[in-house]
């Protein structure tokens, strides 16, 4: 038997933090890609510490629902899962290229394929683009539009910004949008001045965050100037300094993200190609149907 474990942060304070993990897990359950699919959390239950013992499968693919490589993917998750002999060096990553490593967990007799975070997978680029399509309701959005990929950014972890730049660069290379920028909350260039970074009349702003919460629902809308008070809400689009801002909310809530989870497991050896196609088909249909 094979299991998929989606490892997410969760929250002690925000009930919606686990929503993307549940939603993407359910999408993967529906296509029957694994014998077992289980969500686990740093701040909720089952904890990283105890999730493996809840599974029957002897082979487990663990995919972190995190946006970048760093503290959680390199220290917290492997430590809490008790992955014997894990060392970030085994990933041989440049900050965005962690793929997978196969280990055993010391408290259970299971083989664990520990994958890199979903945020740095190439397929995530497509999710950012689809997020732009969803928020504009336009499956061909790009011409006449700018796209801002927004990250938290932190001086403490250079990889946090690398993931944002990685996808911004890949989207820019495709030439679909007139302008593409990587912007940040806690480092330069800052999202506060989003309109200074674009000439386009329309700019889609996609936060590279997993779940909607304090940063994506309160900080960024206020920093960007969509609203003075997040509690009063804002329109999509909202005109700021003569630029229409199409703010999408967290990319992690996009249905297509389930595809990235499966891609990570597939890269680690799971036989899920057919299910990947099914998930792409389903989530594409959802995006076009809802246009949100």
């Amino acid at each position: 038997m094979q299991a998929l474990v989606i490892a997410a942060h969760g929250s002690h304070l925000n009930a919606a933090s686990s929503t993307p993990a549940f939603a993407h897990a359910d999408t993967i359950r529906e296509v029957g890609a694994f014998d077992e699919v289980r969500e686990c959390f740093w701040k909720e239950e089952p904890s990283f510490r105890e999730v493996l013992r809840t599974l029957e499968s002897e082979e487990v693919f663990v995919v972190p629902l995190f946006v970048s490589e760093g503290y959680f993917t390199e220290q917290v998750i492997p430590r809490e899962l008790r992955l014997s002999g894990f060392d970030p060096e085994k990933w041989d990553s440049d900050g965005t290229s962690a793929d997978h490593v196969t280990l055993t967990a010391s408290d259970v007799e299971k083989t664990v394929h520990y994958c890199g975070p979903i945020g740095t997978h190439d397929a995530m680029t497509d999710v950012v683009v689809q997020r732009a399509e969803s928020v504009t309701g336009d499956p061909t959005v790009g011409d006449g539009f700018g796209l801002a990929v927004v990250g938290h950014g932190t001086e403490r972890n250079e990889n946090s910004a690398k993931a944002v730049h990685y996808h911004a660069d890949r989207i820019a290379d495709r030439g679909r949008f007139d302008e593409v920028r990587a912007l940040f909350m806690d480092e330069s260039p800052e999202v506060d001045d989003v309109t200074d970074h674009f000439d386009s009349d329309d700019v889609v702003v996609v936060p590279l965050f997993i779940a909607d919460g304090y940063h994506t629902e309160e900080d960024i809308p206020e920093d960007v100037g969509l609203t003075d008070d997040y509690r009063t809400g804002y329109d999509v689009p909202t005109t700021v300094d003569d630029t229409r801002i199409w703010y999408s909310g967290a990319v992690g809530t996009e249905d297509l993200l389930a595809d990235v989870v499966l891609e990570r497991a597939s890269d680690a050896g799971a036989s899920v190609q057919a299910e990947i196609e099914q998930v792409r088909e389903r989530t594409r249909t959802v995006a076009l149907a809802t246009g949100d």
Binding site: E45, P46, S47, E50, V51, R53, T54
Partner: peptide, 14 residues
């Protein structure tokens, strides 16, 4: 039961 009280059966059995 697993969703209501995660991992409790596994630990009870151990």
């Amino acid at each position: 039961v697993e969703y209501v009280y995660p991992a409790t059966i596994a630990n009870w059995y151990r």
